[in-house]
Design a protein around this nucleic acid. Structure first.
Lengths: 221, 221
DNA sequence: TTATTTAGGATTGTCGACAATCTATGTCTG
DNA sequence: CAGACATAGATTGTCGACAATCCTAAATAA
């Protein structure tokens, strides 16, 4: 997320990261005038940036009423995770069929690096990897399906990251996650699409159940 | 697709249908000036409409170079169908779990109506249903997953329709499709998610293989 | 007091013009 | 003759202002 060929893209990029990081609270209104005074420029590029945010489902815009940071209901969040579960499982199946041997060995090296990282700082940083370093990202790329990549990394990725900080992972979770990742890579290496899909499905299902119990807990307040 | 509260939405709606119907050829350039003289208004709402089209993947926009109607490669089209296959199968599984009895009986009535329609005009019109009358649309709604509905009906639906006219269905296909639809509803009625998903997967897979053979045939030219 | 109405202010949608960038054509040079 | 370069034209990005719409809050009536 670097090349900002136009002012609108630059504003979009900054706003997107601000929303994902929680600096702009869900439901908060995005006033065009306020954004102009903050980011400079005129209203035209700001409006364009807002519309790009709407395209990625990060803000909701209603005609003549303005734009607000998206605020997901519990049901909508569950819906998103449900779709992500299905699509990433699919990606893992396709990866087992289509990843090159070079891709797979590179993935193995990544996991070895992750293992050392966990050794070093007790697994605190394992979940903080992002972008090209992320295990899930590599799997999605390995599916060799551009639209699948676009949906998972473009549309769903930001929203999931936006709400991920809530799901505080237990302290043993990183090590367990690494083990699950290793088994998934084994399945991919042995070119077993069904097993790879199953393992990924179970792996993500843990996050989903974690989320659901947390949501059920929050719903009581 | 009716309520156009703003000029930008109106232009967007008209352009979208024009693209889906093929009145604007894939790869054709969308000049802002030309659209202004055709649809009236100024460049601001036209630019907004174009950006909305980009959000739905109907046009591709590159900075300082303008917007063009999306022109999918064979691989990209295959990727889209692959994703659709997975998501609609998922929707069918969820529908078997979550549709109300009233929804299911309404679906049965729809199929009876389709059967009469095929009797009347030899099945020519069966594939031309759209919107709320469409069988697949009902299944997707039955999944009770708003994000899934949004992805299938909002993002993928238009593009698939855009290329559907190429896949000329053989004359016996409508009757066969109706039978498959009936079996899917049977599975849903008996609350068998796995079977419902399997039947839907096979049902769509026919379209996918039809498409692939057609694409392989076209690739020789 | 509560509900309805009605100005007022603020915000968004739209417009026309200007600046920045790209594309195409033609020229020049090797 | 091929290819790099430069200029001209057209197109897109941005700007500031005006019009249309909505939200708020004060004022009025029940």
């Amino acid at each position: 997320m670097s090349e900002a060929q136009t002012l609108a893209e630059k504003v979009f990029s900054e706003l997107a990261t601000a929303i994902v990081r929680g600096e702009l609270a869900p439901g908060e209104k995005l006033s065009e005038q306020a954004l102009v005074t903050r980011y400079g420029g005129s209203r035209a590029p700001i409006r364009e940036a807002i519309q790009k945010l709407e395209a990625r489902n990060l803000v909701v815009r209603v005609p003549h009423a303005g734009a607000r940071v998206v605020s997901l209901s519990l049901e909508e969040l569950r819906d998103i995770y449900e779709v992500r579960l299905e699509l990433e499982s699919m990606a893992c199946r396709l990866a087992a069929e289509r990843m090159s041997d070079a891709d797979i060995s590179a993935l193995e090296k990544l996991l070895e690096e992750h293992a050392r990282s966990i050794e070093a700082d007790q697994g605190l940083s394992y979940y903080q990897k992002s972008g090209n370093l992320d295990f899930h990202y590599r799997i999605i790329e390995g599916s060799k399906n551009s639209r699948l990549h676009q949906m998972l990394c473009g549309d769903l990725y930001h929203i999931i990251r936006m709400y991920r900080y809530r799901t505080s992972t237990s302290s043993e979770r990183p090590l367990q996650a690494l083990k699950e990742h290793q088994r998934i890579v084994e399945a991919i290496k042995s070119r077993d699409p069904q097993l790879a899909e199953l393992l990924m499905r179970r792996h993500i299902q843990v996050s989903l159940t974690n989320l659901e119990t947390r949501l059920a807990h929050e719903a009581r307040h």
